[in-house]
């Protein structure tokens, strides 16, 4: 498997660290008032940390170009065929998380 890093070009899978699905882009904001009553826990944290759509098909997930430029990448690919459709820089998605 190869991923085309937008900064480095096509690179071998060995250069990348895998994190997980793009749920990790939706880090919940802390809400002091709600946190005070719930002990800091909310369904948003459950969604962010644990629950996954886990599709057999198209998925966008996060990879870190550890052995290259050090960028975090959002890779859109098919989990059944390993075909890669798109690789984007996570910084470019800022503010568009979950879109």
């Amino acid at each position: 498997m190869r991923l085309s890093c937008p900064l480095c070009g096509p690179r071998d899978r060995r250069e990348f660290y895998y994190y997980g699905s793009d749920d990790y882009l939706n880090r919940p904001h802390s809400d002091p008032q709600a946190d005070a009553s719930s002990g800091g826990w909310s369904d948003a944290w459950e969604d962010y940390l644990h629950l996954r759509d886990n599709p057999a098909g198209r998925l966008r997930d996060l990879w870190y170009h550890e052995g290259g430029c050090g960028a975090w990448l959002a890779v859109t690919r098919d989990t059944s065929t390993h075909q890669v459709f798109d690789v984007a820089l996570v910084v470019d998605l800022k503010g568009k998380a979950g879109s």
Partner: peptide, 9 residues
């Protein structure tokens, strides 16, 4: 990495 392919890399 997340995968449903019953074969690896």
């Amino acid at each position: 990495y997340a995968s449903y392919a019953a074969r690896g890399n």
